[in-house]
Amino acid sequence: MYDYTADYVRLPISSVKNVREIGGYPTKDGGMTQWHRVLRAGDMTELSEEDRSFLLGYGLTTVIDLRSADETALRPNPLAEDSRIAYYQLPYIAGDLTAIDFTVTDSMTLPKLYVQMAEMAKESIRNVFQIIARAKGTVLFHCTAGKDRTGVTAALLLLFAGVSTDDIISNYQVSQTYFTSAATILTPMPEEAFSYLIASDTSYIQHFLNYILERYGSAESYLCDIGVSQEELQMLRDKLTKKG
């Protein structure tokens, strides 16, 4: 039996892939990101009752689903109907992702997609950060792979918290290792496209971080620009970090 109060880098659940902590990273002010505050994950459709119980015991109160309406209709999150959970659907990409042609082209690469999300999904991103700031208990956000939309969100959270870019990149990279069920949850596609889409190359998230820092100066400035208030930023800071 696992200890709900323990701190896990990757949570000990087997029915959902890539469920990981945002806690445990050192911050530039000598503190660290807090455990049991924010989790990132991939597709939740196959969540077992045992693993649901573990998440609730771990402190989960809020789930943010970053997928499109078509994705959630095809593979619903069982926690959406759980009265003990506050569930929000805030898609970062509009349209039917299940019908996309996943051929890799120079005009649409993952690094470009990440930047596009930062600019085109500002309302959803603002809402995500406001919900995390105000939520009581542990928040879990997820998409399908738990790598791209989830990775962008995690990168912004960690950058705002004062985590080093090396640690943010490391947090992003792990997804490819844990994303072993991709074949069952991604639309069938050419092998080249499949291999590209499950990759979590360091250059992808580095490109995104560079864009945020060069365009806005900091994650905090970006969050201010999209409408997160100073009060909410302080609430978010208090939730995410613990001073040394």
Rank of each mutant, 00 (worst) to 15 (best):
L240V: 03
S107N: 14
L90G: 07
T241K: 06
A183W: 01
E49T: 06
A133Y: 05
K17M: 13
R84L: 15
Y87I: 08
L223K: 03
Q130L: 01
T202D: 15
T241R: 12
E81D: 08
R149Y: 04
D65A: 14
T144N: 10
G95E: 03
Q176D: 13
L140R: 06
W35C: 04
I169R: 12
S14P: 00
P26N: 10
P91K: 13
K28Q: 12
L97D: 08
F54L: 03
L156M: 10
E81V: 03
A99S: 14
L140W: 05
I131Y: 01
R126Q: 15
S200N: 08
I13Y: 02
P26Q: 07
D166Q: 12
S175I: 00
T109I: 11
G146C: 00
I169S: 08
L39M: 04
T153G: 15
S68A: 15
M108N: 04
Q206T: 07
Y92I: 03
E191M: 01
T138A: 09
F194R: 14
I125Y: 00
R149G: 09
A41R: 15
H36M: 08
G146P: 01
A118N: 08
P78D: 03
Y2C: 09
D148L: 03
M120H: 00
S181M: 06
R37K: 15
D96H: 10
G227E: 11
A155V: 04
S164I: 01
Y2D: 11
V9R: 15
V19G: 15
A121S: 14
D96P: 08
A199K: 09
T33W: 07
R75W: 07
K28H: 10
I185S: 05
V16C: 12
Q89G: 09
R215G: 02
T177G: 05
V152A: 13
S229N: 14
K112E: 10
A219N: 12
P190A: 08
A199P: 05
A6W: 01
T165C: 04
G151D: 07
A154E: 07
Y204Q: 08
T150D: 13
E214V: 08
L223I: 03
D101E: 15
G24F: 02
Y4D: 04
A135D: 05
P76H: 09
T184A: 12
R52Q: 04
V104E: 01
L79N: 07
L213W: 07
F129G: 07
R10K: 01
D3W: 06
T165M: 00
P78R: 04
